Amino acid sequence: MADLGDLNAFIAVARAGGFREAARASDKSASGLSEAVRRVEASLGVRLLHRTTRSVRPTEAGARLIERLLPALAEVETALDVVNGFRDRPAGTLRLNVPVSAARLVLPAIVPPFLAAFPDIRLEITAEDGFVDILASGCDAGIRYDDRLEQDMIAVPIGPRVQRFATAAAPAYLARHGIPGHPRDLLEHACLRGRFSSGAIPPWEYERGGEIILVEPTGPLVVGIGAATDLVVDAAIAGTGIIQLFEDWLRPHLDSGALVPVLEDWWRSFSGPFLYYSGRRHLPAPLRAFIDFIGARV
């Protein structure tokens, strides 16, 4: 019988795609994780991971084991979490998967007071903009916008309930190239675009008086949405081109004058983000505490 801690180590390495990556995401050493995986493989008599100099990935046997282990380990966590009901304060780890925009614009106002109110809870946050199965990724909950919510999930509001996409440019750029008067004028300008991890480049959407216009402008710079967003903001401030991004993200630069609003009467509003989680499983005490905390702030 493999040790439960060793099985958790195997899962962590398989999820992270490497021993060093798994070590960085936990308080374990890469060598300790490697030894744990070796013990599991020795006790089962089968190789569970393909190891190369560049990556680590499950073998067919490893993939089948992960498939069966995940729900079993979740049940173990649920059983242990029952003890939380006998504590004065909830304790444990809460894992969230969130888009980079939420990590930047929503969570800074929530995380510090939440951790101050619940000092026995450890919060682990993964920020990425791809579509993720939160349960398969080992997370308790995620933050997404309503058009990205997964089926069979419960969603509760978190953060601002209305947001806008702002379009802006540096004064120097507008002085050289003029100010667009209509969204279609952007087709004649240098625009700074973002690309999802799937490879899709979303169009820029505008709305005024019930009229919706989608444009596909071009420009000298395309960045990955999320991790490289600050780069495209810096490029816009330097006068490279016109940017479209969350208004809250650009607000400090709009207020300082480093960027100037463009087509402001066309900016589109959309509903704010939601915290979502599975309604088919017992809610861990840390997640229950987080849901109640954000509910009290609405």
Results as ranks from 00 to 15, higher is better:
Ala296Phe: 08
Gly142Val: 03
Leu187Lys: 06
Pro171Trp: 04
Pro180Ala: 12
Gly181Gln: 15
Leu283Asn: 09
Pro203Trp: 11
Phe131Tyr: 14
Val106Thr: 15
Asp27Tyr: 06
Phe19Trp: 02
Phe118Ser: 07
Leu48Glu: 03
Phe131Trp: 14
Gly199Tyr: 07
Glu124Ala: 12
Ala63Asp: 14
Gly92Gln: 05
Asp133Ala: 01
Glu60Pro: 01
Leu33Met: 06
Arg297Phe: 10
Pro217Glu: 11
Ala22Trp: 00
Pro220Trp: 09
Val223His: 06
Ala42Tyr: 02
Gly210Met: 13
Gly224Phe: 03
Ala127Asp: 11
Gly241Cys: 02
Asp147Trp: 15
Ala116Gly: 13
Ile237Met: 12
Glu205Asp: 14
Val106Leu: 03
Gly130Phe: 04
Ala227Leu: 10
Asp234Cys: 01
Asp146Lys: 14
Gly142Pro: 02
Gly219Glu: 09
Ser43Val: 00
Tyr276Asn: 05
Thr53Gln: 11
Ala42Phe: 00
Phe293Ile: 03
Ala155Val: 02
Ala103Pro: 02
Gln244Asp: 05
Leu69Trp: 03
Leu187Phe: 07
Ala61Thr: 09
Leu7Val: 06
Ala63Cys: 00
Glu205Lys: 09
Ala22His: 01
Ala91Lys: 09
Gly45Leu: 04
Arg195Val: 15
Arg148Asn: 15
Ile11Met: 12
Asp147Gln: 12
Ile213Asn: 04
Leu7Gln: 03
Glu216Pro: 04
Val37Cys: 05
Leu245Val: 01
Arg193Asn: 13
Gly45Phe: 01
Phe19Ser: 05
Gly92Cys: 11
Phe196Tyr: 15
Ser256Glu: 04
Ser269Tyr: 07
Arg161Trp: 04
Arg24Asn: 13
Asp147Asn: 14
Asp147Phe: 15
Arg281Lys: 14
Ala166Thr: 09
Tyr206Asp: 05
Ala170His: 05
Leu135Met: 14
Arg15Phe: 08
